[in-house]
Simulated assay, not measured.
Amino acid sequence: MLPSPRKPYVNAALAHQQRWRGRIGMTLVASLSVLAGMTDAIGFMASGDFVSFMSGNTTRLAVAISEGDLGLMGRLLLLVATFVAGNALGVMVSRFSRRHALPLLLCIATLLCGATLLPFNDMLPTLLAAIIAMGMLNAAVEEVNGLPVGLTYVTGALSRFGRGLGRWLLGERRDGWRVQLVPWMGMFVGAVIGALLQQQMGLKALLVSGIMAGLLGLVSLKIPRRWHLGFMPR
């Protein structure tokens, strides 16, 4: 049986669509990583605690345990547990909204903007609101064209990039490892922006993060629905 003359055109169209899905997906990943970096830098500079970098808070928790600092231990345990709860809540919102990014990002925007309305004489409630938002953010994109991505942490991205670089130096030509620098660059740029904003506005700078989350939610409406289904958690 002769192959269909349309098959090469169909394959080319599918490959073109996959490339565009990857580009749009990684642009979204970069934008959300900027948001995460901004928020983390704002929270860290204001309070000394990480908002999205739970590896740092975990190391600080271990040090607090070794020093017997019960107050700091309790605080850091609360921060880590809140981040975990935020991740769980993000998946639930994603499922209830039938995996549309807009409701999730609007919830995040509400939390970040609402955090600026809380009294700053006790930073903990503001910090917890921001941490829940960052936990939820991880449900916005989990993978792009089958490649796992992280939004609020970049250790995994740097590790995947480094392993890919090692394989490339050994002569292996696998795809996908270079794009792991995208979330790292996004978080780095976002952290610089967040640090500058915090110096000028203090914790009120979280309002900028909230506005950005809302705008990204509106922009996400332009992304085809079937692509969202591939980006967001099942």
Rank of each mutant, 00 (worst) to 15 (best):
A64Y: 02
G74H: 00
L70Y: 11
D122T: 06
L72C: 00
L111S: 06
T58A: 05
F96L: 15
V91N: 09
G86I: 03
V51E: 09
D122S: 08
S97A: 15
M54W: 15
A46W: 03
L127V: 04
L105P: 08
G56P: 04
M54A: 05
G68K: 12
A36L: 02
L78M: 15
L79D: 13
N87K: 15
A101G: 07
C113A: 04
L128N: 15
M54I: 10
A88K: 14
M54T: 05
A41E: 05
L89P: 07
R60A: 12
A115R: 00
L72W: 13
G43V: 00
G90N: 04
S66N: 08
L124E: 06
G48D: 04
A109C: 02
V80G: 06
R95G: 01
I42M: 05
M54L: 05
V93D: 01
I108M: 11
V34S: 06
A41I: 00
M38V: 03
G71S: 13
L118G: 12
M73S: 07
L105M: 14
M38A: 08
E67C: 00
V63L: 08
M123A: 07
I42G: 11
L118F: 14
G86M: 04
N87E: 10
G37C: 00
A46T: 14
H100T: 11
V51Q: 06
G71D: 13
L79Q: 13
L77V: 10
G114P: 03
L106T: 03
L89A: 14
A41L: 03
T59E: 01
D69N: 08
E67R: 15
T126W: 13
G43P: 01
L78P: 14
T116C: 08
S94G: 01
T59N: 02
L72Q: 11
L77S: 12
D122W: 09
F83G: 00
A62Q: 07
L128F: 10
